[in-house]
């Protein structure tokens, strides 16, 4: 026994070597017989999670190319979007044209197309000049729109020209309403950014949502009902039961070129009637 132990100790390296090789060999044979040893294989939880991690890291490093392909896709989608938008705008324009004709027949409105020839974009009191005047029946107080929406109101005229106060003039205000509601709000411009205006005097009990359209009310002869002013982009509730609504204007005042002046055939008659009515109420 003692000799055996001594013998084993003397050749312990060799025996360890042989033992380990035997285990390896047994594993190989075992593995080949059963194809897959479920305990010690890649289905193991630890092994699986390591591969999972490596997969994640690999994906992280491929982010750059993924980004590139996404950007490319984005680009092509954007191009398509712009094309479709243009088409849509084209057809919309047509539709609104028919709508306008209908409107004009029904309400005796007609349109005079004019070109903006000067835009004095000061800080607060902006005006612009159009190339149509009294000779084309453009009168003070007429509404001015373009294909996107409400632009402003004529405030003085000469025989060939007219001066228009746009809604982006700090001293002007226009009445407007949330589309689908009847309550009048007061649209004013705070004198900062051509893109945004403020709608006030809308009572709190009216439900307002982001993205709601702000349109003209049709309660005056200046603008027919339903002309686009802009979209609600944010609103806050004031203490006095009214909203403070920030409106993104539909018209791009930086790129104003052609506008339509709205002529209401019986505007004078209407305003005279309304004045008289008001007086008799007093």
């Amino acid at each position: 026994m003692r000799t055996l132990i001594l013998f084993l100790l003397r050749f312990k390296t060799l025996f360890l070597f042989l033992g380990l090789e035997l285990i390896s060999f047994w594993l190989i044979v075992n593995n080949n017989q059963f194809q897959r040893n479920h305990f010690l294989s890649s289905s193991n939880v630890v092994v699986g999670s390591v591969y999972n991690l490596s997969d994640k890291i690999y994906k992280y490093f491929t982010l750059a190319s993924v980004n590139a392909s996404l950007a490319k896709e984005n680009e092509s989608l954007n191009t398509e979007l712009v094309q479709l938008r243009e088409q849509l705008a084209f057809y919309r324009q047509d539709a609104s044209y028919t709508g306008r004709r209908y409107h004009s027949v029904q309400n005796n409105y007609s349109f005079v197309t004019a070109k903006v020839i000067h835009f004095s974009a000061g800080n607060q009191k902006n005006y612009f000049t159009i190339n149509k005047g009294e000779n084309d029946d453009v009168r003070v107080g007429m509404g001015v729109v373009n294909e996107k929406g409400v632009v402003g109101i004529v405030n003085s005229t000469s025989s060939h020209f007219a001066s228009v106060v746009p809604i982006v003039n700090a001293s002007s205000w226009t009445s407007a309403t949330i589309k689908g509601k009847t309550h009048l709000g007061q649209l004013s411009w705070k004198g900062k950014d051509f893109r945004y205006a403020t709608l006030q005097e809308v009572p709190l009990y009216i439900p307002v949502a982001l993205g709601d359209s702000v349109v003209t009310s049709g309660y005056s002869s200046t603008f027919p009902e339903g002309f686009m002013v802009g979209k609600v982009i944010s609103f806050s509730e004031r203490n006095d039961n009214f909203y403070d609504i920030r409106v993104e204007l539909a018209v791009d005042f930086d790129k104003l070129s052609y506008v339509d002046v709205i002529r209401c055939q019986y505007a004078d008659e209407r305003s005279a009637l309304e004045k008289r009515k008001g007086r008799s109420d007093d």
Partner: peptide
């Protein structure tokens, strides 16, 4: 050294599904 070698091969085998080959 033998033990280190065996373990090294065995762990690699587990990951590579070549049970025993690397260990050997």
């Amino acid at each position: 050294t033998l033990v280190w070698g065996f373990l090294l091969g065995l762990v690699l085998d587990i990951f590579c599904d070549t049970l025993g080959c690397n260990a050997f």
